[in-house]
Design a protein around this nucleic acid. Sequence first.
DNA 1: TATCTTTATGGGAACATTCCCGCAACCGAT
DNA 2: ATCGGTTGCGGGAATGTTCCCATAAAGATA
Lengths: 337, 337
Amino acid sequence: MKKHQVTIIDIAKKLGISKSTVSRALTNNPNVSPETRKAVLEMAKSLDYQPNMLALSLIRNETRLLGVIIPDIQKPFFAAIVSGIQHIAGRMGYRTIIAQSDESPQIEKENIQALMLSRVDGFLICHTRDTRNFDHIKTLYQKGFPLVSFARICQELPIPKVVEDDFNGLYTVTQHLIERGYRRIALLAGPKHMQASKLRQQGYMAALRQNGIAYDQELVEHTRFLPDHVSAAVDKWLALPEPPNAICTIYDAGAVQVMQLLKSRGLRIPEDVAVAGFGNDPVASLVEPGLTTFEQRPYEIGLLAGKHMLDTLKKKFTDVPPQITICEGKLIVRSST
Amino acid sequence: MKKHQVTIIDIAKKLGISKSTVSRALTNNPNVSPETRKAVLEMAKSLDYQPNMLALSLIRNETRLLGVIIPDIQKPFFAAIVSGIQHIAGRMGYRTIIAQSDESPQIEKENIQALMLSRVDGFLICHTRDTRNFDHIKTLYQKGFPLVSFARICQELPIPKVVEDDFNGLYTVTQHLIERGYRRIALLAGPKHMQASKLRQQGYMAALRQNGIAYDQELVEHTRFLPDHVSAAVDKWLALPEPPNAICTIYDAGAVQVMQLLKSRGLRIPEDVAVAGFGNDPVASLVEPGLTTFEQRPYEIGLLAGKHMLDTLKKKFTDVPPQITICEGKLIVRSST
DNA sequence: TATCTTTATGGGAACATTCCCGCAACCGAT
DNA sequence: ATCGGTTGCGGGAATGTTCCCATAAAGATA
């Protein structure tokens, strides 16, 4: 049973003064006599007064709440990003409401709608793997909501974006495989329309080109990050007349699955086939052999995205053209290559 | 730049009617003529009216926001719980604000304070491993906030609690080890004051007792879930005149670390030492050999905790006898035993 | 026709807070 | 003694919404 919350009017009545004076005393307004202030503060303490932020939010039209839209909090990558966002936002007095889209563009849209009604002060958004229509984001933009796009970004709007080191990541991984002597390198990519997937593939292709290795379309397979797609790709590659002797993927979970598939067929890693991933997920160091991968630092991505949001809210960068921030990573060599 | 939000007064002015009528039309109040309702609805649509929930929250003294206090969203266990809470709460129109304590009792306290000011409708709380003083929770309870305690629970209050199958989990794991012929079984436990740790240890001891195996205090080590504590424990055990031939832990991450330590000393698992965990974390199936463990279903814990909270919120004035709900699990046998 | 009920609407209070404005009282200076 | 300025405080508006009450017109019953 929730009790009546103590208000400044209660304090005012008890002391026989007006609510204006109580408000002044509580907000450190100079126009209050020291004695009155002391009395108010003591009364507030003894009644256990808690200011009602709702009333304040209504007046200021500001909730100090941030909406964070992610596909799935159970993926370590997103959990780390959320953690970064929360830590930097919390320091500035902002709370975050997390909403999961479960990789459904429809739910993504509904969540944004709901958070808009909750009057969050801004949105930090990572789209589903299938989001192709950005009308709901454009609506937010037109309404003037501060927006930050991260990881799976919306390119169609001039808003701050924070992404992984996509191109460089797969360029470096591929370069590393080539240096280790692998020549027939397959790539497990993501959805074709996804910017991150495109860039990673471009990094892969750039490394091949630079080393005079012909691009073989048969060695590149696109997935929607689903297990079935991965095994289909591996099946296809191993059935080729000249199968790959190295497989790199644009996400670690895929690489881990590739390793399991290869092992179940009795192939040795890296002697028969080398495997490399992208992300340096916690699993990468736990599987055997350890997975060579490109480290991305999702916690830092969260920090950067949060920083952009706070800057926007402070109106620091109103006229600065919104830029794309790349969160740099580095190659982590383990025994899978 | 954020624009002026359209209000019911704007609609009223445009149509030359009162805000009361607009409100009625929008809330499906029967006392509005069909023509007026139609006009209001159309005007609302054309002006892109969004109701201001802040004003409503102020009146109803209800935000439809839930506060979730967890130690660390990056732990898969907590991420899954959060996911469960969000899914069930979202279905009932509740949003959740997640706050991480980073295992600091002080931050836990501050977060609760902050969420109280944000006027959340209730709290779902999992304490830090070091929380021993529950005064901040008692304050919430006295103020009448609906509370649910999960995983690392507060026993000092008559509130709904959801926990893992602690006793039974370690009882089953230990029983399994004994059946496989292991007799000298060590236990890596948690902080002594933690209820979950106590119960799991009791399960372990019950299984030993039932099989006529003497309890050896040297084989039980308490940790604060920190890597250093784990290696110290393993060091101590291996230095014993008669070292254990099986090690079970009350958390999977500890078991994985134990496995790594054993392997680095050239010991084979399970031939030299068997290892078992608790939790069935994602890592359990990825390490080699696969980790035998007791499955706990954190997503279900989240669902149950959320359900308790929603029930409490629905029957605002009737106290439901607070019960402790055990989320049952089952043994998962892999090759580590 | 007179009275009673229904229907559609408007006006205001309420929620908790801040902020602007006005009004005394007091002080120092002319 | 009067003037201008400060100080401390109260009253009210404003934020956006719902809900209660009043009021008018319309319809129903005697």
